[in-house]
Design a protein around this nucleic acid. Structure first.
Lengths: 319, 319
DNA sequence: CTGTTAGCGCGTTCAC
DNA sequence: GTGAACGCGCTAACAG
């Protein structure tokens, strides 16, 4: 019994001959170790929980792939739960994940509220926030600086001489994609001495159609903007098509820039200029950080901010 | 002890007053049931394994969302494993999933080989194939008829008077997306009395760039095709842009049609005409089927073929 | 190096 | 309606 356990777990204290005999018996009997029993006895499940807003969203799917690849590399499996950035759904899945005795938790969601912190506290496994901001700064996290990314994007259009710059934002309730990117937009305007004009901001829902709707609104304006900053690629592409469908040209009549740089950015004409957010890496790095935490290795940096970069393509032009 | 178990599992044989007391104690002690111990004792984990080719692929991500939603509805969690349609990786994850005592398995992969069947046989939990073909026909499955879908797509262009129709295919080693759709193409040509021309078929890798490359090849042909059938949306969009970048027009000069109808199909100009494959439903229905199998309900139909439909947009025109 | 003995935290009989 | 006892399949000491 115990020797079999040693063989299966690669414990060196087994004579090669014995090991061989055990393997043969395993083969002959078709024995398959029961990971649940092992988990109960060892108090480790080699499974991590991942709560994600929506796996069918290209951005998050890319992060998920990064997570899974690294998890795989360290022999962890992942339990995936969609929570749609809904607080109560998030809390609920965190608890079921914890009941399932995951060895760690990767949280990707909307705002991290007091309730979240409370739920995290009762967990006695490490947790890292992934592509999610954390006001309190107490929980380890991996993300980019969304405000800076937005700032850089808007700065780029400012440098091209634009002064009438609209924004297609996500909901301001969303701390990273919504609020932070909106703040970056405002700060960039401010830094250029341009006063903020409420009529040049529309709130979208990150989807293509909402980007197009917002753009239609801007086009109908008396003094329409000469450039648009979109909080995400998908809304930006909606905006580009809305511009083209109304007979105008990108970037000749209106420039478009966004933050994300998903694969879709080069799958549109003109190709979209965007500030790149390293989705795969965010997933990979956060999972790597989690493995360290689970092994109780000491980490130097528990709040990592990954760099973003500008990817110039064809959707931005001078005034 | 036993009474707590009854309360937690909603066993009716508990006096309301006792039940209340137990709940209070649970609250006070911050007790959290251990699903691993429960799994060991009850031999049920309320967890299903999902092996998927690549979660960062929009098509599969959509299927995954369908799976997760239904799983959630029936209180199952899912363990997600990417296997990239590689046989050995697939076999390996199937085995770890089985070791983890999943209550069922959803398999989405490349070809289902004898080895797969062998691995499935040793599992004593239900398995359903999802968006994957199965030559043997022994394993329950949910998919569309890929050959018919391709046939219908090509038929549509034939009806528009085209006779010189190229195809951008996936690898013929892939039974559903590759081989089946290619067969549908050939059959449609045949039914119209058009002889198959090898020079009008290029093999892509499902990515945008490979679609563009294939199209560039076709455009350079002496007698270039007037219509192109792409095995997937993404390659079709690559083709459209390749056509436009070379100064030609879609559909005036070349028509484009594909199978998939992912959200990207309407995120391109002209919008892509495609045969729609109900990704979300394939996921949802296969998960629903799996729940029935896990509850040992008898299912009338263990091989379900979901309908596909033509979605007309602007990328196909007459000759 | 190998076998023996306790649990791991729960569900499930059984008595009561 | 409730509690005691056993066992799920394995790992972790502990002897030997």
């Amino acid at each position: 019994m115990a020797t079999v356990s040693r063989v299966v777990n690669n414990n060196p204290n087994v004579k090669p001959a014995t090991r061989k005999k055990v393997y043969e018996a395993i083969e002959r009997l078709g024995y398959r170790p029961n990971a649940v029993a092992r988990g109960l006895a060892s108090k480790k499940t080699t499974t991590v929980g991942v709560v994600i807003p929506d796996i069918s969203n290209a951005i998050f799917a890319e992060v998920a792939r990064g997570i899974e690849d690294i998890a795989n590399m360290y022999h962890y499996n992942i339990i995936l739960c969609n929570a749609d950035k809904k607080k109560d759904k998030e809390i609920r899945v965190i608890n079921t994940l914890l009941e399932k005795q995951v060895d760690g938790l990767l949280f990707m969601g909307g705002a991290v509220t007091e309730e979240h912190l409370q739920a995290f506290k009762t967990a006695n496994v490490p947790i890292v926030l992934c592509a999610t901001s954390d006001e309190s700064g107490q929980i380890p996290s991996v993300d980019i600086n969304h405000e800076d990314a937005a700032f850089d994007a808007v700065k780029k259009i400012l440098e091209q001489g634009h002064t009438r710059i609209a924004m297609i934002s996500g909901t301001l309730q969303d701390p990273s994609l919504g609020y932070a990117r909106f703040q970056g937009y405002k700060r960039a305007l401010e830094s250029a001495g341009i006063s903020y004009d409420e009529s040049l901001v529309r709130i979208g829902n990150y989807r293509y159609e909402s980007g197009a709707d917002a753009m239609n609104y801007f086009i109908a304006l008396d003094k329409r903007p000469t450039a648009v900053f979109s909080a995400t690629d998908e809304m930006a592409i909606g905006a580009i098509h809305s511009i083209q469908d109304s007979g105008l040209k990108v970037p000749d009549d209106i420039s478009v820039i966004s933050v994300d740089n998903s694969r879709m950015a080069s799958m549109v004409r003109p190709q979209l200029t965007a500030v790149a957010q390293p989705m795969y890496d965010i997933g990979a790095v956060s999972m790597r950080l989690l493995t360290k935490l689970m092994k109780k290795e000491n980490v130097e940096q528990s709040k990592v901010v990954l760099p973003h970069e500008m990817v110039m393509r064809q959707s931005v032009g001078g005034i």
